[in-house]
Design a protein around this nucleic acid. Structure first.
Lengths: 148, 148
DNA sequence: TTCATATATTCACAATTGTGCATACAATAT
DNA sequence: ATATTGTATGCACAATTGTGAATATATGAA
């Protein structure tokens, strides 16, 4: 009972719904920095929201060296299955820009593994190229770190 | 997009999830005082939660004289349908006591219409009878009104 | 080993939002 | 009029959110 409430509460947030949507839109898993760049939030916020989603048993994590990959958790009962189906039914155009950014971000992978940190030079290069063409708003998310 | 967030947020609350569950568990509609007595909250809180649920387009209301009846709103898209299916799949024993109280409350109806206000004498009588038998916790919800 | 660097998490703070309670208010029926 | 059903508002308090700094953990180089 409390779990259902926790799950609905977890999904009732813009950032967290976006995270779930991203994880739902790709077959494999995503690391924190990829999610961060795709969404355009500060990575400490993304980290905290991921923790909330993990507490609600909606995602599971897997650590590989410095990188932490997240994926959707397998639904534990019928209720959660329907919730996931509901999420999968949300029209894609609601997250269009974010999905585009994720595709660009994943193109930076090497051997299906993330090799670029948050806001890496490679990422900046790719984003700038698109900005010149399409005049997309530039990234204004905070750095969440004093250096650099 | 914002609607989905609003809906999930609306469902991420104990009282509101209970309200939706009640509406889902009976074929017809329920008036505010019936919901209030079944849940055991103050009726002004129930009223406000109902307003939130109405804002999220999860319930619809129908006024009949002094009484206001609420019912589940017809799902507007596939996403909402799956959400309702998820809610309908929540095991009943999670709300057992509340469902029992609702059945007792509905037994006070006359001609399928509510004729007893919040915490009426009839309701008190029925509850007391059960309390003597099963030693259920007595109702401790606030009155939400200075008179009476 | 030791140090620097990189990924990710956690902590502290302020701003915002949500909640329950009490009260006042509006609408309706008798 | 007067009682009753339900709503709206103000208040105090708790919960949530985003941000920056600090910390933890892992990698690699000197």
């Amino acid at each position: 009972m409390e779990l259902y409430i926790e799950q609905f509460k977890a999904l009732g947030d813009k950032t967290r719904l976006a995270i779930i949507w991203l994880l739902n839109s790709v077959p494999g898993n995503l690391c924190v920095c990829e999610i961060t760049d795709a969404i355009g939030e500060s990575h400490c916020n993304v980290s905290r929201h991921l923790k909330i989603l993990k507490g609600a048993k909606l995602v599971k994590e897997k650590k590989e060296g410095r990188w932490v990959y997240f994926d959707l958790a397998k639904p534990q009962d019928q209720v959660q299955s329907y919730i996931l189906q509901a999420l999968a039914t949300i029209p894609a155009d609601a997250f269009l820009e974010m999905t585009t950014r994720l595709k660009m971000r994943l193109s930076l992978r090497d051997g299906n593994r993330c090799v670029d940190g948050v806001k890496s030079d490679n990422w900046r290069r790719v984003v700038n190229k698109i900005n010149d063409k399409n005049d997309i708003n530039e990234d204004t998310s905070s750095e969440c770190r004093k250096d650099k």
